[in-house]
Nucleic acid binder design. Structure first.
Lengths: 223, 223
DNA sequence: CACTTTCATGACGACATGGTGATCAGCGAA
DNA sequence: TTCGCTGATCACCATGTCGTCATGAAAGTG
């Protein structure tokens, strides 16, 4: 399976937390739940998530303190959930170091959108999640230090897919991106490049399941 | 009720944008204006609007690139504004992921009507009432985090029904939507797909009564 | 209740799709 | 030129998916 981003949800209202869990899971994230503020900081220390959704009002330790304490040792992105708009200004003034603030009631889609936005923003510095490193400048792809030795087309293909892990690209989309001049090539050409790419990935010690085909749809990267 | 929806208008012609602003405001929406394409993507990331009106030809970054970049992190509805009818076909072929295309010159009333239509269409998704979540990008349908593992036909069928919960679709309507090429298939084929879909829904812990048959009419989703 | 229509289900064959290796053209370097 | 590399296409096979049918159950009708 994949190494999806882990989102920690700290929210005492069960309906809200399960709603968030469902939407985030559907968007390809893993979730970790805390219904009160008691063990949150320890949990973040033990197993740091990739992002935190932190309710302000909590039984046990409140979100404000949690945010401060976490910030003392971690730069993990934090989105604060607040009950009232007016609070946001106050929180901004406190300079907690949270990355975003969302006011209840919120649409789960909006939350997912902001999560995606933040994770995307910090993605470049987050090299840990992707087992294959891509360096456009050097035109080099490496896995565990081993260079894959990709051809130009293979490199563009991998870069495209890896830019949005989990998203499925149709062959037409891939060809549009691979060939800016919109030349007409056979669908099977993509298959061929995928085949070669998979071989080079496994040759370098990678997992061939990283590059998955979705029957009747296209291809995606999942790690 | 929820607060007013924010519509982002990206249009370099001042007369047009102020016209759109006036009509949308009159219709009860808030607006955010961009006269060129330079900071649009950043703005969408920072404060996602509920819908975007995006002109194709822009100073700075063009609408095509903006659409692609926004789609990389957001499912916000996008309506593209184009100068010529012929362009629409080309844009459709590029599979940008825009939700609608409007050709200049357009009547502001028409734009407002389409905006309303799209926001109404996606509104149900915001409620969080749907127990099964659909993500076209990932080609993923999940219930409580569990993936259903749908085939392309099943995914289209479920998407169609779930887009308008409660509405009954006849088998002919479903076939029309499932097969753009209008091939002739037996009515019973729909039954088969419904059967498989129901099984996968229940396998994932869902309720098989969600997908109901209406005797003599067709099928509907009810949740 | 008898009869008809409609639906659910499992099985099966036809077909579409994906994986793979072979082949060939284009192209630059030796 | 020949060689080697890249990239595009094809043929073949395996597998997944789809459409249809037969059968029995359920729903509607008179």
């Amino acid at each position: 399976m994949s190494k999806a981003c882990r989102i920690m949800i700290v929210e005492d209202e069960p309906k809200l937390s399960s709603l968030l869990h469902d939407y985030l899971t559907a968007a390809g994230y893993e979730t970790a739940l805390h219904a009160d503020g008691n063990k949150v900081v320890e949990s973040v220390q033990a197993k740091p998530p990739d992002l935190m959704l932190l309710d302000l009002m909590l039984p046990g330790k409140d979100g404000l303190s949690i945010c401060r304490e976490v910030r003392a040792f971690s730069n993990v992105p934090i989105i604060m959930l607040t009950a009232r708009v007016e609070e946001i200004d106050r929180l901004l003034g406190l300079d907690l170091g949270a990355d975003d603030y969302i006011c209840k009631p919120f649409s789960p889609r909006e939350v997912v959108a902001r999560v995606k936005a933040i994770l995307r923003r910090i993605a470049p510095q987050d090299g840990g999640s992707a087992p294959i490193l891509l360096d456009p400048d050097r035109f080099a792809a490496t896995h565990a230090g081993k260079p894959l030795g990709l051809t130009p087309v293979e490199f563009r293909l991998l870069t495209t897919l890896a830019a949005q892990p989990g998203r499925v690209f149709s062959r037409n989309q891939l060809m549009d991106i691979l060939y800016v001049d919109h030349r007409i090539v056979s669908d099977r050409t993509v298959d061929s490049h995928v085949k070669n790419l998979r071989r080079k990935i496994t040759d370098a010690g990678g997992n061939e399941e990283w590059l998955q085909s979705i029957y009747g749809i296209g291809y995606k990267i999942e790690w």
